[in-house]
Every structure is written in structure tokens, then in C-alpha cells.
Design a protein around this nucleic acid. Sequence first.
DNA 1: TAATTTACATACTAAGTGATAGGTAAAATG
DNA 2: CATTTTACCTATCACTTAGTATGTAAATTA
Lengths: 218, 218
Amino acid sequence: MSATDPARVPPGGKPRRGRPRAAATPERRRQIIAAATEAFAQQGFNGASFAAIAERVGMTLPGLLHYFPRKTDLLLAILDERDRETVALIAAHTGGPQGGWAGMKRALHELCRRNAEIPEIVQMFSALSAESLGREHPARGWFETRTREVNAGLAAMLEQARLNGEIRADADPGIIATEIAATMDGLQIAWLRMPDRVDLVRQFDLYLERLDGSIRAS
Amino acid sequence: MSATDPARVPPGGKPRRGRPRAAATPERRRQIIAAATEAFAQQGFNGASFAAIAERVGMTLPGLLHYFPRKTDLLLAILDERDRETVALIAAHTGGPQGGWAGMKRALHELCRRNAEIPEIVQMFSALSAESLGREHPARGWFETRTREVNAGLAAMLEQARLNGEIRADADPGIIATEIAATMDGLQIAWLRMPDRVDLVRQFDLYLERLDGSIRAS
DNA sequence: TAATTTACATACTAAGTGATAGGTAAAATG
DNA sequence: CATTTTACCTATCACTTAGTATGTAAATTA
């Protein structure tokens, strides 16, 4: 990060003086997010204490507040960051808008495969997702928006596949999109609860295969 | 409740003296459980305050502690009570051990139908279920045991149906049992998040129908 | 009526909770 | 070197948390 780094030049265009963002800072942020992910996964947003997260990265609470002025800010930062990575992974495997039903299945399989490697993050999402059903929860809106978007995205791809003649004309894209998302979420919880008895990837693959068999154009 | 009520006679057989359980007590318990269900649904176990639950039934915290000496006791009491009702509902619709796959589908449909009428209770279960994935959660063991039992029960019925020739020989009862439970849980969360856009019963019926089509013996 | 038990309440404690106020040392820049 | 900014820390705040210790009025029975 040099003095000519665009990030160093504020909107006004005037170069700033003083100590710039230290090299260690992005690393600190990563540490904080890792610690918070673990804490939220284990105790939820309400249950996890902000001070305990600070302590886990070797900081005091005000030190942490320097990075995230409120607990809610940290929560939303984590969710956004993770979501961006997931969107990227999906985009990388669908095979683009032309990927069709085959591309969609491939992307879903890959998403599941990756999730099976990051249980603590999946657990954080599962815990926060359910917790956020509460009326006053700070991530309620976030999860609602995300659910809507994921569903719309899946439904649009299914609609395309239907028009392509890949899947049956009487398959309802909205219904199937909701089902796929819900089944994935539910299987993840089942897997997290008993990792030794549930094979997430195999379980999801078999579901997808059966779904495929019942909606693919014959 | 009379003096000859068996519940009044302690294990020793000696009749007790003093003020017996007042008529209002079972009603109080019901009130407490209703209030706690609502609180746990909205804020989870860790997020909901014991004192707030007491206040909701017009009591002080020590008054509530008279009924449930620790917060955890109340949690487990709620879970047990609800679960017993669910078991009863299932038993009432399977058509007994001879009900087979048809009875199983009927019972699952009825369970879903009833759940659609008690969103706050489903929400409490969903919230606590995900929250209980945390390593130190007081209901962790409860949910694990329950999951195991539900799965074993479903798998046993599927195995029976397979032996009866109702479903295909290559359908794996364990896999399908896990999938059914997971999909139901996932759909419930989707429904709770957007009740206006997800029709729980229809969504689950369509899933079951498609599952049926792909595993029924041909 | 006297003894006993219930169903609470008042008052309290020790330990957290997220957040604020104000300071300081180090680093980078002009 | 002087200035500025960062990246924290100490101390404190007003509240809330689950839980305890103790008391008491009412209900019931011997």
C-alpha cells in the first residue's frame, strides 16, 4: 500500500497526512472476523459477548470498538463478506447464464462441497439465520433480503431451463427454488448436529439427483 | 384434585399435610410456558431474559424460580412438553405399524398442517434447534437425542415399506429419513421468514409428492 | 385451632452487558 | 522535527443478568 494507493486519496482529492492504515490492520480485521465467526457460531449474536470477541484477538473491548463502532456493525460486516465469497463461487461454476440446469446443478454441488469444508462458518450462518427470525433481530432484514435474492436467482435459472426445455413445463420454478434452498439449509443443520452420521455432500447429491429425475424433461 | 388423588400421595405412601397444589398452579405453568415459548422464539435461549418471562406472566423472577429453579429447567420442560404432543399427533395419523408408506405420508402431511397453525412454536423450535448447535448449549443433548430418535423412527418405517414392496428396494431408508426431516425443518424456516410468500403445507406436499414419485416401487 | 406447606414477594449480590470519555505512544508525512 | 493520524488502552457508566436469602400471607389438613 503506497502513498499513491487510490484508497489513500480521499474523495476530495487532497492527499492525507499522518499515519496511514498500518499494514497490520487488514490482518487485524481478518482476525476479528474469524474470532467473531467462531463466537457467533457457538453462541449466536445475542449470546456472544463483544468483549469476549475482543479478548480472543488479544484486545480490549474499546480496542475492538475502534474497528467496529457497534456490535451490529461487526455482525453485518461478517455476513456481507461471507456472502460475497459465496456469490463468487456460484458465479464461477454455473457456467454463466448459458449454463442452464446442468450448470445450476454443478454450482449447487460445488457450493455444498465447499461448505462441507468450513463447518464453523456454516454453523454461524445457520445459527444467525434462525436467530434472525426474531422480530427485533439486527440481521433480520439482511437475511430476508438475501433469501429473496437467492430465491429469485434460483427461480430465474429454473425458468430459463424450463424455456430451454431442459426441465418439465409443469415444474414451478418458485416452488423448486424454495425447496432447494430449504433442503440445503436443513441438511446443513442435520450435518452440523451429527457430522459423523450425516455426509452432507452425498446427502445433497442424492437429493439433487432425485429432484433431477422428477423435473427433467422426458 | 381431591385428597385421594394419587399425585397427592408421596412415594412413601404417607399422606401429606399442608396446602396442596392450588388449582391455579397448572394454569400458571401453562402461562409460564406460553410466555417462555414466545420469548425463546423471539430471542433464543441465551437472548431471552428469565426475569422478562416472569414479568410477562405478572410475576417476579423469584416467583418464576419457584416453578423452575433454573432457566435451563424451563427450557427442557418446554421442549419435552411440545415433543410429547408431536409424538401423539404422529401416532394418531400413521395408522399404526401397519400404516406403511401411505400412513407415513399422511402423518407427515398432518404434522405439517398442524405446524402451519402454530408459527410461534415452530419458530421457537427452529431458533433453539440452530442455537443448540453450540458446544455448550444446554439443549444440545436434547436436540441430538431427538434428532436421532426421529431419524430412527422414520428410517424404520421406510425400511418396513421397502420390505412391503411399497417403495423401491434401492431407496436408502437412512438417507431418505434424514432428507425428509431436514427438508421439513428448512421449509419451516423459509416459511417463518416470509409467511406471505411461502405456503408451508403446499410446499411440503409438493416435495412429498415428488419424493413419492421417485422412490415408489414401479 | 394449630401445624404445615404453598406460592409467591422484597431485597440483594456478583458478574456481566454494550458503550463512552479521554488519553497515549507509535508511525507516517510535510 | 513538528504535525497529524492511527491504533489502541484505562477507567468508568448505567443497565441487565441469573440466582440467593429470607420472609409472609393464604390455603389446607390433622
